[in-house]
């Protein structure tokens, strides 16, 4: 009824998190769990990329996201946020880093502030799943190979050629429409009038001649029940889909 909108009270995290907390097995119980998380959180803010057990990384991730989003939302003059930062960050100089470095870095970040990867677990270790947790925009080299920048990779060669062919085809269509439009313009107005009276079906296309070619094409294809041809946008979108 008169409930407050929760998203206005607290920041909405940009990651998926489990609804049930992990207990992070330790002697001290729930307090020990918080200690563990404080340690990991401090290390992450300090080093920006850490490798650790998957459970602990995943559990800490939510707290990091929450802390950074609160810092962005309320700034460093907000008492509660400052207390929160003081609680979570064991090394106090990192509070300055949080507000002066991380807040400007993530202010306009549309995605999560952290990234997590599964890491390999090699035989001498125990059988725990490993993970790498990092802050976005860290200064280290990327962990995953960049498959979009190198246009010589085979899928990029194929996509680029498809792109070229698609553009050439669309430009040819536009040129054809323009030619047709020119032909119609050169005809005398009386001819056009006569034509339109004879063939009422062609009226819509006659009207369309005066429009910008793109709009006209979009209209024509809409009539055919196709998607409107999007000359540049389609492949612009595509690049971002790769991988």
């Amino acid at each position: 009824m008169n409930q407050a909108d929760v998203t206005k009270l607290m920041s909405r995290l940009k990651i998926k998190y489990a609804p049930v907390r992990r207990r992070l097995k330790n002697i001290e119980g729930p307090e020990g769990r918080l200690k563990k998380i404080r340690k990991t959180l401090t290390a992450l803010v300090k080093h920006e990329r850490i490798e650790l057990n998957f459970n602990r990384a995943d559990e800490t991730r939510g707290y990091v996201e929450r802390l950074i989003s609160d810092a962005i939302r309320y700034g460093d003059c907000h008492r509660a946020t400052m207390e929160l930062a003081d609680y979570w960050l064991l090394e106090k100089q990192l509070i300055h880093k949080l507000f002066k470095v991380l807040v400007p870095r993530f202010e306009n970040c549309p995605v999560s502030y952290t990234r997590m990867y599964r890491a390999p677990n090699l035989p001498p270790d125990k059988g725990y799943e490993r993970a790498v947790l990092e802050l976005r925009g860290n200064p280290y080299p990327p962990l995953l190979p960049d498959t979009t920048a190198n246009r010589n990779l085979i899928h990029n060669v194929l996509l680029d050629e498809a792109h070229k062919e698609f553009r050439a085809q669309k430009y040819a269509e536009i040129a054809k429409k323009l030619e047709e439009a020119d032909e119609n313009m050169t005809k005398s107005p009386s001819d056009v009038a006569a034509e339109s009276s004879q063939e009422s079906e062609t009226e819509s296309s006659e009207e369309a001649e005066g429009q910008v070619p793109d709009e006209k094409m979009a209209q024509l294809s809409r009539e055919k029940g196709e998607q409107p041809p999007d000359i540049l946008g389609m492949f612009g979108l595509l690049r971002s889909y790769m991988y």
Partner: peptide, 9 residues
């Protein structure tokens, strides 16, 4: 490659 992009190929 996602299906859409592969479909184009």
């Amino acid at each position: 490659l996602n299906h859409f992009a592969y479909g184009i190929l």
